[in-house]
Design a protein around this nucleic acid. Structure first.
Lengths: 223, 223
DNA sequence: TCGGAGGTCCCCCGCGCGGGGGACCCGGTT
DNA sequence: AACCGGGTCCCCCGCGCGGGGGACCTCCGA
């Protein structure tokens, strides 16, 4: 099974260089070379190659926009590998959001480019190691639970419980019903919570709870 | 400059296999082999190798916990590569959060393991392609802005403006001051917002706004 | 020209809320 | 035995809030 590849880069030199690399592999066939993003989108739609290797910087339509267009069309099964000289973070995030299968730097050794192609073709993804480092850092912070403010320790278990319910926008009466206690009791708890946290009213408590991640506004683990 | 490596896996067979691979590389030196996580942590602290290759499944202390302990100690400059047979998502997230430089499957070809070692040693990071795919998907959703509920279109510009301020826990009077209008006007806007969005009171509005991402609870772009 | 949408301001009324008190009970510490 | 932190319940009081009306203006499109 031979892999068909489309090459998009505005430098003819680089295209021929990469083509030369591909030609060393019997199972890789470069079915098209284009010099700008618009042509890339058009040729992908026409030829449906297995993988499209796009430079990020291209005339008419840059690689990112082209990626978005290609992957937005469900008729395309083409995987997209993005190639760039500069590994600006912004590019990476946009590329990944667009659904690119890879983000590689042009400094990549030829043989690794080949293996990247095969990886992409079989549906996996890969990111240039130098980029992965920062990506992980970014991902880690986005996964990290928001730091729990120390004043939360002042609250008793019951008070935290009440705070959760306040944050969920329940009224005192509703909270009382859920906790099977009188509403006067809830008022006491709420008052204590506000006093301990230095909050003016329950409205501030709701904002406080959301900002400090006391309520899951997202599927657990994502963030 | 030779790279020193620590090998941690509870299977002697696998250790000797990997050691054999390393021996083919003149600049790689395997300075220690251990069979459990506790020993790995201890030896890393003692020998300070450039890279530690840890299996996830190990007796006494698993690879993830060992990674966390190793990287928690700032005196350690050792990079950690995690190796596993199974690419369970949970493992990956924990590994990345702990700060591992790599997450690889044991199915990785030997020569790629070697190159992974060098990548880790120079401070970059890499993730097994089959895992990267899912990681990207996950990262993309965590970057994606929360879907804007359609009923928000019912609001006028001014009403959305007021909603933002309500969500920030401002009182009607405070909002009036900020917008340089009378507080009766603010009341009107708030009432309309509640009616249009089907919310009971401003407390619900605050929760609604936070859940739907109308207020930035995180540095922009992260999420 | 007339209407409607959006923005601004006004009145009245009821109620939930939050602060200020106080009270009781229980479990653990001193 | 005395004490205290937590949890529960109760009173009164003031106020911000939200609903229900209505009014006026401007801009824009029918």
């Amino acid at each position: 099974m031979t892999l068909t590849v489309l090459l998009a880069d505005d430098h003819a030199m680089l295209r021929s260089g990469m083509r030369a690399i591909f030609d060393t592999q019997p199972d890789l066939e470069c079915v098209a070379e284009v010099a700008d993003g618009r042509a890339a989108v058009a040729e992908v739609a026409r030829l449906r190659p297995d993988v499209a290797v796009l430079d990020i910087r291209m005339p008419k339509l840059d690689g990112l926009a082209a990626t978005e267009m290609i992957l937005a069309d469900p008729a395309n099964r083409t995987k997209v590998l993005l190639l760039t000289t500069y590994d600006t973070d912004e590019y990476v995030y946009r590329a990944l959001n667009a659904g690119a299968s890879g983000f590689l730097l042009k400094s990549l050794p030829p043989e690794e480019l080949i293996s990247a192609l095969r990886v992409a073709a079989r549906g996996d993804a890969l990111i240039d190691p130098s980029v992965t480092q920062r990506l992980i850092a970014r991902f880690a912070v986005s996964l990290a639970p928001p730091p729990t403010p120390p004043e939360l320790d002042l609250l008793t278990v019951r008070e935290r419980e009440v705070l959760q319910l306040v944050a969920a926008a329940y009224s005192n009466a509703e909270i009382a019903a859920q906790l099977h206690v009188g509403d006067e009791t809830v008022k006491t708890h709420v008052s204590r919570v506000l006093a301990k946290l230095g909050l003016r009213d329950r409205v501030h408590a709701v904002a406080y709870a959301h900002i400090n991640g006391l309520v899951q506004t997202r599927p657990p683990g994502v963030r």
